[in-house]
Design a binder for these strands. Structure first.
Lengths: 342, 342
DNA sequence: CTGAAAGCGCTAACAC
DNA sequence: GTGTTAGCGCTTTCAG
């Protein structure tokens, strides 16, 4: 059964007494090739067990039909859903997806960018590492005009396509909702402020307070480096056991919002009656925690699909030179954790 | 800034008045090249902005340094962790990872296998789609002796490397634990029985019952097609409202186990006092649900790393002709959902 | 220690 | 409608 030698178009050509180019064209159903010939070639090809050598074609065409994706880590609900969307869309268009994890480290992100650059991917989608503050490692892509799209955790300093949500507005509606539920002292778990997503969420939170005539109290704003559950729990403990406890919390992600609920339970603080909580992302855990967590619906899958589409269409349409930003709508999903009134 | 033309080793060679072969060797730090020359070449290369053309090297070397991964869908905790492990290990060894989702459909799995086969990946890791019952689409890999490793949802009919856990034993200890907690009527949520993982879990469950002198009651065994939360909730409702309600449930995954707890809460059945519950996987939701869900710790990341290692080492060591099975240990994680005694 | 030259397999411009 | 031919950029054998 084993075939030690790979069949090439030359083998087919020889057997059929035609030229390699004819075979090549026939295999692509080129219009200038007779139907007869096409049939003949196809038959012979499958008979000999031919498989096209994509690598050779890639070399010749200067195209790999592969896109790269650099993300923090794949085992997070938002990211895995995002990347799932990218894959679906890319496959539709005949592209492969290589992914690489930065584990939120700049060093790894740079390494990944370089490796992917050298592997001649046709485009790159990036959601930045938490740490990243400088963006030189993406310059080579711009210089060589390789399509580059940032998603969610983006930088605006680089003149590339962006796919984002309106973080400011999302945070605004989340906070406004808490206010409408009667909260007057609303705390905020903020993320690293050099990352636009977290900076904007903080802004939206402050906007809502200001609009409602509530003071922005810096002692109610905690900046968490990683926004993981340990950090979230500690922050919750701190703010819930301190004097002048808040009656509402808007957290920058669901993970820490869940920690808040768990901590409140432990401390005997009633959610939502004494403490209303809203998270961000709509991770699966939102409907598992009791009370269910109100949150902002983050359209991860759609963002992935759009990023891929943007990347591949921008690519084939060099007329669009200017960088475009796609900003997706989000909505508040109100659940028990913040529902005091009907 | 833009470079319209790519620099090749020929450009470097010309500038330096040496031959392309010397440049090629120097770039690889071949021992037969003088240190002087190597330095000169490296300097010129970076000065000209040279980047190696990996595609050309791939063609020449008949190797892509890329491995493919086919999984059901990436946005599941177990899968995303698995795939994260694969990527980490692959990167260490200088390999890229292309992933493709089957969405649990055979048709897509076949398509993915064919596409990846043609793209000349150096190896393939597969966790089978729920549906898959025939395995011809993997034959081409075997014929061409392209390393093939199955993980978790595997087939034993194909003489390839396998990375699995001991599902029978895991289910056995889970069920035994329920018995030790005093359960005498233990139900089981089984998965599709043509998938080895679910078949073995059922066997382990039955073994534990039999060993303890308890009857295997088929009315307590429900086979769920997809093991998603909707199915889980329905099954829970059915079995908890029927006559002769069970006092324990061992579910084949955490998703449905959580549904059981949620349903029990709604029905006013106390967990664990009236109904002890054990799941499988140790998904993040286990510690979010209240009471926390006892489960089997599934070493997803490690499985991914091992699968990648197995794939890449087997590859470079053709002496190992026989297919090997790596079976990982699991352990029971006991939490509140099944803790009646101390 | 270095160079010449062939070839990995495919494509497409240019002939006929 | 089909054939000839020249590469895509790299590696490596063989020769020196």
């Amino acid at each position: 059964m084993k075939r030690s030698k790979e069949i090439t178009i030359y083998d087919i050509a020889t057997e059929l007494n035609v030229s390699p180019s004819t075979v090549s064209r026939a295999l692509k159903k080129h219009k200038s090739i007779g139907k007869e010939t096409i049939k003949k070639v196809e038959k012979k090809a499958s008979q000999l067990g031919y498989r096209p050598n994509v690598v050779a074609a890639n070399l010749r065409n200067q195209k790999t039909h592969t896109i790269g994706v650099i993300i923090s880590r794949v085992d997070r609900p938002f990211i895995s859903t995002l990347i799932g969307g990218i894959e679906s869309e890319a496959k539709k268009k005949g592209y492969h997806v290589i992914f690489a994890q930065s584990h939120d480290k700049v060093k790894l992100e740079i390494e990944n960018a370089n490796v992917l650059f050298n592997s001649r991917i046709d485009g790159l989608i990036v959601s930045l590492a938490m740490e990243t503050k400088s963006y030189e490692h993406f310059k080579p892509f711009l210089d060589k005009e390789i399509p580059l799209v940032f998603v969610d955790r983006v930088t605006e300093t680089l003149n590339t396509d962006l796919v984002v949500i309106d973080n400011t507005h999302s945070a605004y509606i989340a906070t406004k909702h808490l206010i409408e539920q009667g909260c007057t002292r609303i705390a905020h778990f903020a993320g690293a402020q050099h990352r636009n997503v977290y900076r904007n969420r903080r802004t939206g939170y402050e906007n809502a307070l200001t609009e409602a005539g509530l003071p922005v109290d810096n002692s109610l704003i905690l900046e968490l480096k990683h926004l993981n559950s340990e950090e979230g729990y500690k922050a919750a403990e701190k703010i819930l056991t301190g004097k002048n406890r808040p009656d509402g919390i808007f957290a920058s992600n669901d993970t820490t919002a869940v920690s808040v609920i768990q901590c409140a339970k432990k401390l005997g603080i009633k959610v939502p009656e004494e403490l209303a909580v809203v998270g961000f992302n709509n991770d699966p855990i939102c409907t598992i925690i009791d009370p269910a967590l109100s949150t902002i619906d983050h359209p991860a899958k759609q963002m992935g699909e759009l990023a891929a589409r943007q990347l591949l269409e921008h690519k084939s349409d060099p007329i669009i030179d200017s960088s475009s930003t796609i900003k997706l709508k989000t909505s508040l999903i109100q659940r028990a954790s913040s529902t005091r009134k009907k």
